[in-house]
């Protein structure tokens, strides 16, 4: 196979790695308020990294799709800097708080609009709702085989070869293309794009198409929102920490050791 056409689905979410003190819950409005910048959901970054490695090996094209109520091209431009060839933002107020089925549906419409593809990669789960189903649903909608939890992906002629994590170790599976694979962190972090490369890119902007609901969905009724009954803060996890003081590491170690002695 010469040159592969990959689509990567990448969601934009508030940085999931901020400390919990930066996250609060508005119980009345049923909203999670995260005091953090937006990022690409980490597993979607892993998916992009996997795509770039495949492209490096065999050439081809990577298209990144990102769907949301409002999607920031500044957050997602990084995908182009890292090695994607095209970025399509799928945004519309109608896309706010969609349930997983509807997200998969809109993505499937966008992918049909794009036309030809060989491989679709998504993250194993999004870093905000942690649902872990959009990838598999999307494959069902498109009627293509799907493989989840990939830790490495290879293309061999018209087949995709995946090592996936299973409870006893790993399993090697294969499927014919086109196929969808959900990607886990074991494939490795998205390569870092140096600042100078980012600056260069800003000077030669890539056009970023935006598709809205009317471009993709004939019947808006088909889109369902998450029906939140209630949103609450998590149970308080704090404990009163007893700090072990000491002027040298050995002194602290000695005190800690006697603590364990009482435990044991």
């Amino acid at each position: 196979m010469k040159g592969i056409n990959i689509i990567v689905c990448a969601k934009q979410i508030p940085d999931p790695e901020v400390p919990f003190s930066n996250v609060s819950v508005d119980v009345e409005k049923k909203e999670v308020i995260v005091d953090a910048p937006n990022v690409i959901s980490p597993y979607d970054e892993n998916a992009l990294e996997a795509a770039i490695r495949i492209k490096e090996e065999m050439g081809g094209k990577i298209t990144v799709l990102s769907l949301g109520r409002k999607v920031s091209d500044t957050v997602l431009r990084k995908t182009i800097a890292a090695g994607a060839d095209a970025l399509i933002l799928i945004e519309d107020p109608a896309f706010e708080r969609l349930d997983s089925n509807s997200v998969a549906y809109v993505l499937s419409r966008a992918i049909r609009k794009i036309g030809a593809y060989d491989l679709i990669l998504t993250g194993r789960q999004a870093g905000d709702w942690d649902s872990g189903q959009v990838g598999l649903l999307l494959a069902e909608l498109l009627g293509i085989p799907s493989i989840s939890l990939a830790r490495s992906i290879k293309i061999k002629e018209d087949r995709v070869l995946v090592e996936k994590t299973v409870p006893v170790g790993y399993e090697v599976v294969e499927a014919g293309l086109p196929a969808l694979v959900t990607v886990s962190n074991e494939v490795g972090e998205l390569r870092y794009v140096s600042r100078s490369k980012m600056m260069g890119l800003l000077k030669r902007p890539t056009p970023i198409p935006k598709w809205g609901a009317k471009d993709l969905v004939d019947d808006l009724e088909r889109l369902k929102k998450i029906q939140l009954v209630e949103l609450s803060p998590p149970p308080d996890m704090r404990r009163a920490c007893l700090f072990i003081e000491g002027s040298t590491p050995q002194e602290k170690a000695d005190k800690l050791a006697s603590f364990f002695k009482e435990l044991g």
Partner: peptide, 13 residues
């Protein structure tokens, strides 16, 4: 606030 935790780590490097 302008960058994520991960990006700050990478940028510092």
């Amino acid at each position: 606030r302008l960058f994520s935790r991960k990006e700050w780590k990478q940028m510092t490097q």
